[in-house]
Design a protein around this nucleic acid. Structure first.
Length: 844
RNA sequence: GGGCGAUUAGCGCAGCGGUAGCGCACUUCCCUGACACGGAAGGGGUCGCAGGUCCGAUUCCUGCAUCGCCCACCA
């Protein structure tokens, strides 16, 4: 730093500490990551996953978002105009709960929007006798947006600290006005095309949240139960069946055996009487009855499980539901129970939860002698709503659906084709998509009996008798969207007509949160909002996401995009693995092993944390490992240090001249090879291999090349100085997608004109005509001579009498003769090429 | 039960038809004219098991085992 003019420059950073703030501000001021809107085909657009803002920050977030950012930065350096927006997911149950508690409110859809509404709480602790206050859905949404802002700031703060190159002028909310408008609009279009429909049918029902749920939200869990052996009474004697759900006995509509089962052939055409309730039910035969399960004959109830639904449908059985929406036995004796004893028995079960009713009915059966033996404990898999705590029940109710190919082979095949056309990274993840599509058994149930969410833009006429007429819904026109039917009246109706005969009622349900999320490519790219932007950014290029939501977010997006455009929403899907804690358990809040991401960022620096994330391949579960971050930090420091040294050796910034010496050219050839391999890896979304490649080259550059040429460079050799400058520029550019802070810092030392490394061109391999072999062999020789010094326990700077290189590598290494001589402090340097193994002999 | 992945040095991971590689940790050495928030050198593995294909398998095929994930399984 002896040169004039450098006096003014601030001192070069020696460590990575404190770089974040400086460059974060500069990037933001210079709008480095802004999408410029240059249009196709130079745009690279990313369908960023909107994080659940009410969720907790987690190192898993840091992990997967870093992977995406590496791609974004790489593409930007390849010259793409990168469209990298950020969404905030503030729709759905987690937010609903958080808003309820934070503001002390709950939604009452019968209330009208009140512009002057003030929530009773604003965070903090509720007073002792506090009662939550009802508010309209619109008010609730506004509170949600208010609270989300705080949550978003936390997330944004993390993303900025991590160095995500998101264009912060492009954000959206999943409960925001635009998302509501697009979701409702697309729903209306689905409806018009016959892709959305409503029907009364058995649905999967969560009794805790009291809402229908979809197949995609189910989760199998072990659930303890008891086999009960019940006796049904027939003409020729009793028939024993085994069941784990005796509480549904009153809902029994038939007994079902396999047609091939000789044990029950005698019952063909017969009927039996149910225990306790004395209801006559037929004995029927169906392939789906498994001979080796239980007694081989099943009681079909409406509804105990999916097989019951199948039997009920296929054999046209009567509907006898006895569970209410809260999962309790209904409060009055159903009309099909006619006997007095039956009625009395039923009365004992009324209003009990399924769980309590099970015990009660077992006692009743025991008493009446209609249960054989004692209940036998068993553990079985039961379906749960993923956020619920009680098993799913199946209840008949009216719901909205979107077709998904479950009952339409052509659509299913289309969806499978879409899966094959997408490039999954890693490729084997496509199987998960395929398995899901092949296993679809129901259309997508999109209505939820919740209060917070995107409302269906639907009203129903009320008949003169006062009943809602679901057969011809009243719909808004697209320009009126978004609407909240619970506080707005449909066109042609006055608000006073709400709920009155001859008037209208609102559809009270809201959409599944995935119904909105499945439209993120449309939402982000400005469909029906900014057609110019849409043209440039849609279809998108990349969908990064978690592997756990292939069956939801990924599939639903493919489905709905296909319905609207008959196109794929994007070309590539990048799936990150899980973050495991250091003991290889999946991190989860309930286990208390979650690491708050701010801590490692502050302790090791963002580049170091990114290094840890970047060293894991897509789709590979990875342990949280601070050791890896330490290595990242060391690498980042080394980059600063090496850059500084190279600039000193290479006499500062300024023009880079020609490289003429063979060793220097050979180094540049080795660099070109690494550039080529790193580029290939990144093109294949293999950031981990790319990083490895660059890192390996860099360490060799520091340990071998710099050591070899520094003497020559000190003496002012132009070729060495130029090669050092060329190499360090390339190294900084190659590392830039991974370690954006240090590379930016060092880049500015070499390029005081003030351009960002992140807008510089990705290095192109340049042929030099010299083989990289000379450099590699010279590096090897250096290492061998060091080894001999090390064995003698001599310092590396120990001067030696002579060093002789022999064997196969000697010829190639001889291009570095002078440099080696200086680097190993040898008085004499000799090369004796031969056939044998390359070796070195040092005379002390 | 079906599918998908994993199984390589104490730990974390690469690799992939030609008799094993990286990082951490470990041992020894070096404050060498960039860096001690550093550097050099070294020890350590019959590549889960059993078959098969091949001149040759850690790498391909077939079984098996263990672990993980997804789906199905509620009588």
């Amino acid at each position: 730093m002896s040169e004039e003019g450098n006096q003014e420059q601030p001192e070069r950073a020696k460590t990575v500490d404190g770089l974040e703030e400086k460059w974060t501000r500069w990037w933001s001021e210079k709008k480095i990551y802004e999408y410029r809107g240059e249009g196709r085909p130079g745009t690279y657009s990313i369908d960023t996953p909107p994080p659940t803002v009410s969720g907790h920050l987690h190192v898993g977030h840091v992990f997967s978002y870093t992977h995406t950012d590496i791609i974004a930065r790489y593409k930007r350096m390849r010259g793409f105009d990168v469209f990298y927006p950020m969404g905030w997911d503030d729709n759905g149950l987690p937010t609903e709960r958080r808003v309820q508690n934070y503001f002390g409110v709950f939604v009452d859809t019968s209330l009208k929007f009140d512009p002057s509404f003030k929530p009773p709480l604003e965070g903090g602790k509720a007073p002792k006798d506090f009662r939550a206050v009802p508010c309209s859905r619109q008010n609730f949404i506004e509170l949600c947006e208010k609270l989300s802002q705080k949550d978003e700031e936390q997330f944004k703060d993390l993303w900025v600290k991590l160095g995500l190159s998101v264009d912060w002028s492009r954000t959206y909310h999943t409960i925001g006005r635009e998302c509501r408008r697009i979701s409702q609009l697309e729903f209306l279009r689905n409806l018009e095309r016959g892709q959305a429909y409503q029907k009364m049918a058995p649905v999967l029902w969560d009794t805790t949240f009291q809402t229908a749920v979809s197949q995609a939200e189910l989760e199998g869990r072990e659930y303890p139960g008891f086999y009960h052996k019940l006796l049904f009474h027939g003409e020729g004697g009793d028939v024993a069946i085994e069941t784990t759900r005796p509480e549904l006995l009153a809902a029994c509509v038939a007994l079902i055996a396999n047609p091939k089962d000789p044990r029950y052939a005698r019952l063909k055409g017969k009927s039996v009487r149910t225990p306790l309730f004395g209801v006559q039910v037929p004995v029927l035969f169906h392939e789906a009855a498994e001979m080796d399960k239980g007694a081989g004959i099943a009681m079909c109830c409406t509804f105990g499980d999916a097989t019951d639904v199948q039997w009920w449908r296929e054999m046209d059985l009567p509907l006898r539901p006895i569970l209410t929406k809260s999962g309790r036995i209904c409060p009055q004796v159903p009309e099909w129970i006619e006997s007095e004893e039956g009625k009395r028995a039923f009365e004992k079960l009324e209003n009990l939860t399924a769980f309590s009713a099970r015990k009660e009915i077992a006692a009743l059966l025991k008493e009446s002698g209609e249960m054989e033996g004692e209940p036998v404990p068993t553990s079985r898999m039961a379906n749960f709503y993923e956020k619920g705590s009680k098993p799913i029940e199946i209840l008949p109710s009216r719901q909205w659906y979107i077709v998904n190919g479950s009952h339409d082979e052509k659509l299913r095949e289309k969806m499978l084709e879409c899966g094959r056309a997408l490039s999954f990274h890693p490729a084997f993840m496509e199987k998960r998509y395929e398995n899901w599509v092949e296993g679809l058994s129901q259309d997508w149930l999109i209505s939820r009996q919740r209060f917070f969410g995107i409302p269906f833009p639907v009203w129903y006429r009320v008949t003169k008798e006062g009943d809602a007429d679901y057969s011809s819904p009243l719909l808004p026109s697209p320009e009126d969207l978004p609407v909240d039917p619970s506080s707005q009246a449909p066109r042609g109706f006055k608000e006073e007509m709400r709920g009155k005969p001859g008037g209208f009622v609102a559809e009270p349900d809201v959409m599944d949160t995935w119904a909105g999320s499945s439209l993120t490519p449309l939402l982000a790219s400005g469909w029906k909002r900014d057609e110019g932007l849409f043209e440039k950014t849609f279809p998108m290029d990349l969908r990064p996401q978690g592997q756990d939501i292939i069956r939801t977010w990924l599939f639903d997006t493919v489905l709905r995009t296909w319905m609207e455009f008959e196109k794929l929403p994007w070309k590539d899907v990048a799936l990150s693995g899980w973050i495991l804690d250091p003991d290889h358990k999946k991190m989860s809040k309930s286990k208390g092993n979650v690491v708050v991401p701010k801590e490692p960022i502050e302790a090791y620096g963002p580049d170091a944390v990114r290094y840890w994330a970047a060293s894991a391949k897509l789709g590979v579960d990875t342990a949280y490992d601070e050791g890896e971050m330490k290595i990242g930090r060391r690498l980042a420091n080394k980059i600063l240090n090496a850059s500084n040294f190279v600039l000193e050796l290479g006499s500062g910034e300024g023009e880079i001249g020609r490289v003429t010496s063979r060793l220097d050219l050979s180094l540049l050839s080795a660099l070109a090879e690494s550039e080529k391999r790193a580029t290939q890896a990144l093109e294949a979304f293999d950031h981990a291999s790319a990083l490895q490649e660059i890192e390996t080259f860099f360490w060799s550059f520091c340990d071998d090349y710099i050591e070899l040429v520094k003497d020559r460079a000190y003496r002012g050799d132009e070729s060495a100085r130029n090669a050092l400058r060329i190499a360090i520029d390339a190294i900084l550019a190659l590392f830039a997608p991974f370690l954006p802070f240090v590379t930016e810092e060092a880049w500015h030392w070499a390029h005081p004109e003030g351009l960002s490394v992140h807008l510089s061109a990705w290095p192109e391999p340049v042929p030099t005509g010299e083989s990289p072999e000379g450099y590699r062999q010279a590096a090897l020789c250096l290492s061998m001579i060091r080894k001999q010094k090390s064995e003698k326990k001599a310092s590396l700077k120990t001067e030696v009498e002579s060093a002789k290189i022999f064997g196969r590598g000697a010829a190639a290494a001889s291009i570095a003769a002078c440099d080696l001589k200086a680097a190993v402090h040898a008085k004499n340097m000799e090369f004796a090429p031969g056939e044998g193994e390359t070796g070195a002999k040092v005379e002390f």
